[in-house]
Design a protein around this nucleic acid. Structure first.
Length: 434
DNA sequence: GCGATCAGTT
DNA sequence: CACAACTGATCGC
């Protein structure tokens, strides 16, 4: 039946064990306070955060996985078969982990969301642990964080981006500073800012609780009078907000993200206005990401996109080169993306297939896709296709296909809205089995 | 009131 | 161009 043996960041009934790589909401869809579909395996830190995100969560379901250790699931512990899982730090956000599974199905790695920068000490240690754990074993499948698995995604390390942000703040000594963040992540950035400026950072009350759970007891405050630097929910961060704030005090906003929409939405917000001062135009709206001195991270003039807003490519996902490094290191038989995309732009096998042992032809678009959902034997349920059988001319990445196809005007790809992250690994992955 | 979807926001 | 992470409305129950 369609029940998988284990699920990673997927929460539907039918699996014997559930793994949570980290607590971002796009990985917890289907998880709730009342969820009870099976044992939930996660890092110690994630386990600590779960009750905060899901009050009244049944704690007896939680199984802590120590980082750097192998853990066994076996019939003696009520599991259908024996498998082992190894855990390393994914360096994506607090508590985030990468998982290595060994069992009847062979060896598979779920990276979860991850960022392993070559210059990051934590990532270097994680990599060593992983290599040591794998020994000479071959890896059959890597479920990769393919968010940026396209060579157009080239951005600097978080260290460099953090220095850019600090420089921006230092160059605005008389301004209030607003930084957009989410419910978890980018703590290191805020700590560095705090250290560099010798100043506390304001966060909203729930975020302060999170900070305390994470063990940061001194750096953050909810008292606005103590600091000019405030970290606010990203969704509350807009051109309008910044303009409103500026009617009260001079304020700049900083968007720490490598996602292209940042630039786009910020530009669009003000292009038609009268803001196009010469100093603004100097910002080269259409230019690509910042080119900066690799060593010290000095900023160029170009991450300013609005009179009051800077966009800095501080990313918690690996860039293209880092993904490539990872795949080269693991040299798996094949790859699956954990981010289901409605297009081929980030299909991992397209760019990385040559680094795999099984050099599969690049199947760019939809998999067979007969079933609606669920029962496909595969692994990651990438579940959508365009109804028909039209094939995008592979590298003809030019236009997206929203125009009109088959006379149907698909104005939005929203029908295909990706939604499905996560992987379900079946007890029998092999084709010879039903 | 909950969960699943959809819509929309940055 | 896509993408990530999140909030909020809606609908069925």
């Amino acid at each position: 039946m369609e029940s998988g043996l284990i699920s990673v960041d997927r929460w539907a009934k039918g699996s014997s064990a559930y793994f949570l790589t980290h607590l971002h909401s796009d990985h917890t869809h289907g998880l709730s306070s009342s969820w009870s579909n099976g044992p939930l395996f996660c890092s110690r830190l994630t386990a600590k955060l779960i009750p905060f995100k899901f009050p009244n969560f049944n704690l007896s379901l939680i199984r802590v996985l120590e980082i750097g250790s192998w853990h066994a699931l076996s019939p003696s512990s009520g599991f259908p078969t024996t498998l082992h899982v190894f855990v390393v730090d994914a360096c994506h956000c607090p508590g985030s982990i990468m998982l290595v599974f060994r069992g009847e199905f062979g060896c598979r790695i779920c990276t979860g969301d991850f960022r392993w920068e070559p210059s990051c000490e934590k990532a270097r240690m994680a990599k060593e642990m992983l290599v040591a754990a794998l020994k000479d074993d071959v890896v059959d499948v890597v479920y990769i964080d393919n968010t940026y698995s396209n060579p157009i995604y080239d951005f600097p390390t978080r260290q460099i981006a953090a220095n850019q942000i600090i420089d921006i703040i230092l160059s605005h000594p008389d301004y209030d500073i607003i930084i957009g963040i989410n419910t978890l992540g980018k703590e290191d950035l805020l700590l560095q800012i705090s250290r560099a400026l010798k100043i506390k950072i304001w966060v909203w009350p729930e975020r302060l609780q999170t900070m305390h759970l994470l063990g940061f007891n001194d750096t953050f405050t909810t008292n606005t009078t103590l600091t000019r630097v405030r970290a606010v929910p990203q969704y509350s961060f807009s051109v309008d907000t910044l303009e409103a704030l500026n009617t009260m005090r001079p304020t700049i906003g900083i968007m720490p993200s490598a996602l292209p929409w940042v630039k786009k939405s910020l530009q669009k917000g003000n292009l038609s206005g009268s803001f196009l001062t010469s100093s603004f135009k100097r910002g080269r709206l259409s230019s690509n990401s910042v080119q900066i001195d690799e060593q010290n991270g000095a900023i160029g003039p170009l991450n300013k996109f609005h009179e009051h807003i800077y966009s800095v490519p501080y990313s918690d996902h690996s860039n293209f080169a880092e993904i490539e490094d990872f795949i080269r290191l693991i040299h798996p038989a094949t790859l699956k993306g954990i981010v289901s995309s409605s297009s081929c732009y980030i299909e991992p096998m397209y760019y990385f297939g040559r680094l795999c042992r099984v050099n599969q032809p690049i199947q760019l678009l939809h998999k067979p896709k007969r079933e609606e959902n669920g029962k496909s034997v595969g692994v990651v349920s990438t579940k959508f296709s365009f109804g028909g059988d039209y094939v995008e001319p592979e590298r003809n990445k030019g236009k997206n296909f929203k125009g009109k196809f088959l006379g149907v005007r698909v104005s939005k790809l929203s029908i295909l809205r990706r939604k499905n992250r996560g992987a379900k690994i079946l007890d029998n992955n092999s084709p010879e089995q039903d």
